[in-house]
């Protein structure tokens, strides 16, 4: 027995070492370094709070931060509102034969890279774009209108790029909803609104929260869509990070911004998980 216990478990180590190296070298230590740099001065390497103070003292920084957070919440909410009827249609209304095909149709566009999808919207919406060409030629517009580079277009783009991550989990829970519950409510004379309010939406809550966590995180951390579709005044916080690190080469300031973004996304995800009494394990399943 003793001999057996001292025997090194090579099989275990073979799996354990790569995973531990990966998680510590690429996740834990880099984030600790991010935290350390955010509290040090650029040239001297001494401890300082300046990088965080700069964030609070410069309105442009914290305003961007608040705007990014606010817009991310709005986008997440819009995505939820659109995803519910879409999932309901695919899961409950359309014939089962078609539902599988629709599901594939919904998934395919999201395999395409975000950049191409945003580029497609740019071709459609810009001043020399397809929609302007169309509207001018049918006489609806007198002259082309710039539809890109404003907040509404940017929000639409963010909704578009993150939609799938809500639709898939919501369809998942919608499929589990027993049709007879809806039938019973209907037979007992419940109105459509009552059925939605008391049966469908409560049942889908877990799917909505899971999707919401992923969508919120993706939107908060997105760079391409706000950068290419938003206007000069609609700076996203990831762009501030990019500017500090790539343009100004001020890594310590960039580290502080990065850490603030990480803290915000972790906080919101934590709150959502607590509110719905789940843990992260179930969400990523």
């Amino acid at each position: 027995m003793m001999k057996n216990r001292r025997h090194i478990k090579w099989g275990f180590l073979f799996f354990f070492l790569p995973v531990v190296l990966w998680l510590f070298l690429l996740i834990v230590l880099p984030h600790l370094e991010l935290l350390r740099l955010s509290f040090t001065k650029a040239n001297t390497g001494k401890f300082t709070l300046d990088n965080y103070l700069a964030f609070f003292n410069e309105p442009i920084y914290w305003l961007t931060f608040v705007r990014t957070a606010g817009y991310s919440i709005i986008v997440t909410f819009i995505v939820m509102v659109i995803s519910l009827p879409v999932s309901f249609y695919i899961s409950k209304i359309v014939k089962e034969r078609i539902s599988g095909a629709l599901m594939i149709l919904i998934l395919v566009p999201f395999w395409v890279s975000e950049l191409i999808r945003v580029y497609g919207w740019m071709i459609l919406l810009r001043e020399s774009g397809i929609l302007n060409h169309f509207f001018v030629s049918i006489g609806l517009f007198k002259e082309p209108v710039e539809m890109l580079y404003n907040d509404i277009t940017m929000i639409m783009g963010l909704v578009y790029t993150s939609m799938l991550f809500m639709v898939v989990p919501v369809i998942g829970v919608m499929d589990d909803l027993d049709n007879s519950l809806i039938e019973a409510a209907y037979d007992l004379g419940a109105s459509k609104t009552a059925i939605w309010r008391t049966i469908i939406i409560p049942h889908c809550a877990s799917g909505l929260v899971n999707g919401g966590i992923i969508v919120f995180m993706l939107v908060l951390g997105s760079y391409l869509t706000p950068n290419l579709m938003g206007g000069k005044n609609s700076l996203w916080f990831t762009e501030q990070i990019y500017n500090q690190i790539i343009l100004y080469f001020n890594w310590n300031q960039g580290a502080a911004f990065g850490f603030l973004l990480l803290a915000l996304s972790s906080l919101i995800i934590w709150v959502l998980l607590k509110l719905t009494k789940q843990n992260l394990k179930e969400v990523v399943k």
Binding site: P30, H31, L34, I213, I214, M217, L220, G221, Y223, T238, I241, Y242, I245, G254, A255, G258, L261, L262, S265, S266, I269, L280
Partner: peptide
């Protein structure tokens, strides 16, 4: 759930 930008920097 860590934004890709943060992993990068």
């Amino acid at each position: 759930v860590i934004p890709g930008v943060i992993l990068g920097i």
